[in-house]
Design a protein around this nucleic acid. Structure first.
Lengths: 339, 339
DNA sequence: ATTAGCAATCTCATTGGGGAAGTGCTAAAT
DNA sequence: ATTTAGCACTTCCCCAATGAGATTGCTAAT
């Protein structure tokens, strides 16, 4: 790389960095003064003109400073390399906190999403872990009223689901317990289809239970991701580009949709390594002013969830990526313990 | 009530109604023209001056029309009486929908909050039902790894909680099942304190389980309300008074707090009848530009939750109140079925 | 290849005026 | 005593004009 190309790259990095921290177009004089480049603003303007012709830079208007394009962010993220992680102390504190809550899965996810939002200063998303295909682990039946029982179904990969069952005749708790024992013995490890195929001779009540079990498992299979926990909406809204902007409403509308996460992610999240989706790389149109950093966590093939951060394209990628990676790693360890 | 007083009340109702539907100060001429009062704008101005001196009306500035005060809204709500409910067809449609999901408690709450938000055109809140004091109903232990098990605890009043247990030595599923049976036999119907007081001789493993059970029950008792489901944030944000206003951020910050609902409600929600909290009647300062309509649902003493709607003071009280009442009634029926 | 200098461009905050909206007051009418 | 018409006055809101400030693009010199 020639000296000139090197300087252009430096200038590009400076522009992206400055724009990320100040949220305002970067002037050539600022670059020349605040960084020891030993060239005049005019030279920098020449380089910027070149970078603009290559599609890395735009200007909001004729006499405004430089603003990075999506291409510039992409390049910037590429140059980050294996960046610095979170500060040791923050990371350790978070680690301790998560360990303390390791017996309460829900609580742990809520802590994770809460701290991820604060580490990353943006909207954080964590989905509960789930298995790629539902497999029966255990069920339990609890009598509520004479004709009504509560079905609790445990699936492999830390999923627990409940449903109310109504019978045609009174069923006592003892009978329910007997039913549970029978099903636990024969259905263990089976998939929904497996249970349907095994088709043992069933009584009326047994059929009701089995149908509910299969229905839960199939519903579960249709979902792409577990229920997402979200935190830090107001951190996102406090960002200068969204302050009092109608665009935030489109984001809220997106988040209220049922399966927005599957639409947004497509296939992209991969295990253990944060992926960055910048601006127009987002398939969802309303996200094209945003960047998304996502990673999968969990144990491959057994149980996995997604952690991610959504923020303006002008986010502190280094910090966000390492936050996502940290949280992802810690949650993976946690899942491995009780899978 | 003299003729003049009657006219003043009518004018007050007109001003509140117009302001609710148009979100703009109401001019005396508008009142005279659009409503057949048979008096001139000047007369109306005199009455408005009186209403202002009594604290029912303000003006954003000298030559602006009339805007109702909190006192006016309170009066307006009082005059509503037992207002018109929701349209029959909407109500019936919703009723059907809720019945279809009656075996899935979570799903039912989500449907309820979703439709409540849309009926009321504002932010809707529904908390899951819970009992005033936790009482043991049933537990189940599922082996996850040699030393690790999943505890599932069912409490009276439709609560189901889970926790991961770690033992010092390997415990098989058979042993776990035996443990469950034992506990189900002796702890049934007991409170957390009751279990502690009964203090049977316990093995190491039994102690771990019991401790977890008591801990869950006590944690549960400390919570004032179940986990709130929220819907319709963007409906709220689309209201003209919040459009591009920084006040929405304070609302988001409030909603992200752990126990905001208890702070906001205090003692107020009462069973089966919607309560209206207007503007400065809210104890929470950031809500003083809002109104809140809340009601309890469930079965008194057994299991109850809260349904509510949060919106601008300028909300359609008639519609919101009847929406809240409808949803509350339907959810109460539902809870009664499986309590 | 780099730089200094300068004209050109665009934003943004300020100012001021015209017009519209709507009240408050006063005096007359009922 | 109540209601009304008429009018002055206040305030907002939109618009255009203005000027200052920032920063670039270009040109010509180094």
């Amino acid at each position: 790389m020639s000296l000139i190309e090197e300087r252009r790259e430096t200038i590009l990095k400076i522009i992206v960095g400055e724009y990320i921290s100040r949220a305002m177009p970067v002037a050539s004089r600022t670059i020349a003064e605040d960084y020891a480049l030993k060239v005049s603003p005019a030279t920098i303007r020449n380089d910027v003109a070149y970078l603009e012709s290559e599609g890395y830079i735009t200007h909001p208007h004729h006499s405004a400073g430089s603003v990075p394009t999506d291409k510039a962010y992409r390049c910037y993220v590429g140059l980050l390399g294996d960046a610095l992680g979170l500060p040791e102390d923050e990371q350790y504190f978070f680690y301790q906190l998560l360990r303390e809550a390791r017996d309460r899965i829900e609580q742990q996810l809520r802590l994770a999403v809460f701290f991820l939002a604060r580490f990353a200063h943006n909207l954080a998303i964590v989905t509960s872990p789930r298995a790629p295909e539902s497999r029966f682990k255990h069920l339990d039946l609890v009598s509520l009223q004479d004709f009504v029982a509560l079905l609790i179904l445990v699936l492999y990969g830390v999923g627990i689901r409940q449903r109310i069952l109504s019978f045609d005749e009174a069923v006592s708790q003892d009978e329910l317990t007997a039913l549970s024992n029978k099903f636990n013995a024969i259905y263990g490890g089976m998939t929904g289809n497996g249970i349907l195929a095994s088709e043992p001779k069933l009584s009326r009540e047994e059929r009701i239970v089995t149908q509910a079990v299969v229905d839960i498992m199939e519903t579960e299979n249709r979902l792409e991701y577990g229920k997402p926990c979200i935190e830090g909406l107001c951190l996102l809204l406090n960002q200068p580009e969204f302050y009092q902007s109608p665009r935030i409403i489109t984001i809220l509308e997106l988040l209220e949709k049922e399966s927005w996460l599957a639409n947004v992610l497509g296939q992209r999240a991969c295990m253990g390594k944060a992926e960055v989706i910048i601006g127009e790389e987002n398939r969802e149109e309303v996200l094209q002013d945003f960047s998304l950093v996502v990673s999968q966590y969990g144990v491959s093939g057994k149980a996995s969830g997604v952690v991610g951060v959504l923020g303006p394209k002008r986010m502190d990628y280094s910090r966000v990526i390492s936050s996502v990676n940290s949280v992802s790693t810690l949650l993976s360890e946690s899942v491995a313990e009780y899978i």
